[in-house]
């Protein structure tokens, strides 16, 4: 490194992200980092630790729990919090919990809106956070490609795509009026392949669900759903069977489609991903509702 004239692509991305993290810590009163336990969150957490080392991460880590996450995700989350001395905050929408909102009875749209979108809004309001750091990437989806790194939200957490602040060089306008907030995306410029190669190069720990293992699943319209606990509702005639599956995205287990795979370690996953011909978000059932649905969700305050 000492003799190098320029940084490799991954090192350049890493530095850029660290710079963004530090800018948040220095510019905002009450930042918070969104933590979804997935691979992007794992990279985010790794970068945050690097940004402030030897200090501990100087802001809380917020997990919006829908109560339907894979059990393994929750165990992983709690272990990470202990291991890295994190200030972990877990929020569950109490209204949704009382009303018994769940993906089986209410469907993915209602469940996601109440337990995720509304829950996030509750948590952000309760914490009076002025900056919420997220792991969104510009390569994920068309409307994300135009997202700023520092994305301004009004007092209702809404995003106005016509009124975004121009973002030049690495000079970020972090100014806010009372009640307003910022969403900050330190890994905006990373691609899915960058995330995986970085996890590989840095040896970052990710939940085991990403690796192919024998898991109890049922197949529904071509999607493999894991039976993670006894709340699972079998259709008449359905039974769980053991299959080698892994998950490309992690969320609520009844809404996360697994894929048949034999990729049991990181290199195999990367290889499999490189050969695959479907995009990452397809496994997330919430996006397939309508064209431009992600954009609508963003305007409503969803990440």
């Amino acid at each position: 490194m000492t003799d190098a004239k320029s940084l490799s692509h991954l090192k350049a991305l890493e530095s850029e992200s660290i710079e963004i993290f530090r800018e948040v810590a220095a510019s905002f009163e009450r930042p918070v980092m969104m933590y979804s336990i997935g691979k992007d969150s794992s990279v985010l957490l790794h970068l945050a630790r690097k940004a402030f080392y030897p200090s501990r991460v100087p802001f809380p880590i917020l997990h919006i729990d829908t109560t339907w996450k894979f059990r393994e995700m929750i165990a992983f989350r709690d272990r990470m919090a202990r291991q890295h001395d994190l200030n972990l905050i877990v929020h569950i929408n109490p209204d949704g919990l009382k009303a018994g909102i769940n993906p089986f009875d209410h469907g993915s749209a209602v469940h996601t809106d109440v337990m995720k979108t509304q829950a996030l809004r509750q948590a952000l309001n309760a914490g009076r956070y002025d900056a919420a750091i997220g792991g969104a990437r510009r390569d994920e989806e068309k409307s994300r490609a135009k997202e700023r790194i520092f994305s301004h939200r009004n007092a209702q957490h809404a995003w106005d795509p016509k009124n975004q602040r121009p973002e030049l060089w690495r000079i970020f306008n972090t100014r806010l009026a009372p009640g307003e907030s910022m969403r900050v995306f330190p890994i905006s410029n990373w691609t899915e392949l960058d995330v995986w190669t970085y996890i590989y190069a840095e040896g970052i720990e990710i939940p085991d669900l990403y690796f192919a293992r024998k898991r109890p699943v049922v197949e529904r319209s071509g999607t493999l759903i894991m039976v993670d606990d006894d709340r699972f509702r079998f259709e008449p005639g359905e039974t769980a069977r053991e299959e080698m599956v892994r998950f490309r995205t992690l969320g609520c287990y009844p809404l996360s489609g697994g894929i048949r795979s034999t990729a049991a370690d990181l290199p195999s996953i990367i290889m499999e991903m490189q050969a695959s011909r479907t995009s990452e978000r397809e496994g997330r059932l919430i996006d397939s509702d309508s064209v431009g649905s992600m954009e609508k969700k963003k305007q409503e305050g969803y990440f």
């Binding site: 490194m1 000492t2 190098a4 004239k5 320029s6 940084l7 090192k11 350049a12 890493e14 530095s15 660290i18 710079e19 530090r22 690097k50 940004a51």
Partner: peptide, 10 residues
């Protein structure tokens, strides 16, 4: 620790 840091390194 590093011995040196170049342009672009955080």
């Amino acid at each position: 620790d590093l011995e040196a840091a170049i342009a672009g390194q955080a």
